[in-house]
Design a protein around this nucleic acid. Structure first.
Lengths: 145, 145
DNA sequence: AGTATACTCCGGTTTTCCGCTGGGTTTTGT
DNA sequence: ACAAAACCCAGCGGAAAACCGGAGTATACT
């Protein structure tokens, strides 16, 4: 139930990329890392994972950087988190089918918990995050005036 | 999103205790540990935590052991998990209120995810687990005949 | 062509946490 | 008195998370 730094960093970066989805100017790691105060070498790894997962595409060389490969409204938060933890690849995924009855029951409940969480994550997209942030910005501005 | 051994062990132990909630004969750590194949020294710690959380009470000395301090239907799985992770005590719990706007938004979503998961956990009690297990036992028996 | 800029790949390090173990103390029934 | 249990505290080993570094490679710009 803990939001890892990994997930947060990735989402922040993707939000950044979503902001300039229109123009095809790529955004550099250094840029994102500096803006959001994220260790750049670590962000690099995460973006590499996201690239392998097909969520972003990269442009190498000078003037290079990263771009969102799909539209912001087509990328759910579940997509992102799945991509990140899918990289760790829990191959030894104990489904608990071999354990005793009590453990199996507990595992069943856990599946329900997981589904409930995933339902929420699936229904939010990067665009939703962007919209919510922009709305909040607007609001803060109004209070200021 | 991972069911820890800690949580599973605790639930298994509580389920055991729920089974003999009627009689006031306490159940020993060794007993539970042996039945469910749990390292007893570790289980000891977990039960201590559950005791401090008020979910079980203990009887010291010979013929001692543990008893459920409340009725099985009044203890939700959320109660149990909260008790366990509350012990770790994330005192430095960053509510993200100090961070920037983007992080705050992400944190908000995470709160929703957490609530969705907790809703499921809250609505299952130890009694529910017990009932479900017993029903499953019944079912297996029928298949056997 | 040459150079600066950026990603890419691969590995190493540090820190943190989980699961687990051990030693010694205190309480209680017989 | 003795044994059986909970209690308390402290540490350990491995794995994962978080982070850093270096050498290589692709690309743009001049």
């Amino acid at each position: 139930m803990e939001l890892s730094s990994k997930s947060e960093y990735a989402l922040l970066a993707l939000l950044h990329l979503a902001d300039r989805y229109q123009d095809d100017e790529p955004l550099q790691i250094r840029q994102i890392a500096a803006d959001q105060d994220i260790p750049d070498r670590y962000l690099e790894q995460l973006l590499a994972t996201l690239r392998r997962g097909g969520l972003v595409k990269s442009q190498r060389g000078a003037k290079g950087g990263y771009l969102l490969s799909r539209a912001p409204w087509s990328i759910s938060l579940l997509d992102v988190l799945r991509c990140l933890e899918g990289a760790d690849a829990n191959l030894a995924d104990n489904n608990g089918s071999d354990r005793n009855l009590e453990s199996a029951i507990i595992y069943e409940i856990w599946v329900e918990v997981d589904r409930a969480a995933n339902d929420v994550l699936q229904h939010y997209t990067l665009q939703d995050l962007k919209d919510r942030r922009d709305a909040r910005k607007q609001l803060d501005l109004m209070y200021y005036i």
